[in-house]
């Protein structure tokens, strides 16, 4: 029976743990290493070190910051702001996106407003937020949350609206009530879009917090970078940026792992959100 042959393309073999396999994984690091080497070489030769610092100086500064504990309070403040801003933004985005996606009536009323606010450059709101929420963490959380919100909202809204009408009808005929329809159809169908929004929102939450801290703050990584740049401390600026970079990469890695786990059916069958 010809139709009993499972499609082999979907069952790609697991990456082999061979030396060649590891080598292939290291290849993407090469351009980064080359850039760092060039930076090290060019600093003091092509460009004055006071403008661009150099990798060894940045590494030394990083070590010093952690060894003396100077960076810890900044790190702690920024981390709190990031986590809260991100969590509030994601929660709001998922809830609003889901509600508007499910209810065409709500969407008709609110979609134009959301779209209008979507176009507002959120960074321009930073000074206002400082006035409204103070120079403490509140204003940074708000800025980060609003940037995350729109991204997540838009993805979830699109995802819920893209749910196959025929699958919804089928599930109703099979006997589903509204609650079961949400659990078995809408949530799993929207999950890839929720995950995509959450992953895309990570760097935006960082931008929100750092811009907020740049504008006005008493503590935080953004303030630290700001102070370093205004006191001719390029090594300090790059050290701060390196920490942010590490954070974004780490969070992105965790999000990708979570996504692979939750959306196992997609990795196995090779179906992207666009094909749902």
């Amino acid at each position: 029976m010809t139709d009993l042959a499972p499609s082999t393309a979907a069952q790609a073999p697991a990456p082999r743990r061979t030396i060649r396999g590891y080598a292939a994984r290291l290849v993407p690091l090469l351009p980064g290493l080359a850039l760092i080497a060039f930076w090290q070489w060019a600093s003091g030769r092509l460009v004055r070190e006071v403008y661009v610092s150099k990798p060894t100086a940045v590494a030394a500064r990083l070590y010093e910051l952690f060894a003396t504990g100077e960076i810890v309070p900044h790190l702690w403040t920024t981390a709190q702001e990031l986590v809260l801003g991100y969590a509030i933004g994601v929660a709001g985005g998922v809830a609003a996106g889901y509600a508007l996606g499910r209810s065409p009536r709500l969407a008709r009323v609110f979609e134009p407003y959301v779209m209008a606010f979507y176009g507002v450059p959120k960074i321009a709101l930073a000074p206002l937020f400082i006035i409204w929420f103070g120079i403490g963490p509140g204003s940074k959380i708000a800025l980060s949350a609003i940037m995350v919100f729109f991204l997540v909202f838009y993805n979830v809204y699109t995802g819920v609206r893209a749910v196959d009408r025929e699958i919804v009808d089928l599930t109703l005929v099979m006997g589903a009530n509204q609650r079961q329809l949400t659990r078995h159809v809408y949530l799993p169908a929207a999950a890839p879009f929720v995950m995509l929004g959450m992953r895309l929102a990570i760097p935006y939450s960082v931008i929100g917090v750092i811009v907020g801290e740049f504008t006005s703050a008493t503590q935080g990584l953004g303030l630290f970078i700001h102070v370093a740049s205004s006191t001719y401390d390029p090594a300090g600026v790059f050290a701060g940026i390196a920490i942010l970079l590490a954070f974004v990469l780490g969070a992105g890695f965790l999000a990708a792992r979570l996504e692979r786990r939750l959306l196992r059916w997609r990795t196995l069958s090779g179906v992207g959100p666009s094909e749902i």
Partner: peptide, 11 residues
């Protein structure tokens, strides 16, 4: 235990 994407059209 197969997901639909791993099955042929007939299956």
């Amino acid at each position: 235990g197969h997901y639909p994407g791993q099955l042929s059209g007939g299956m």
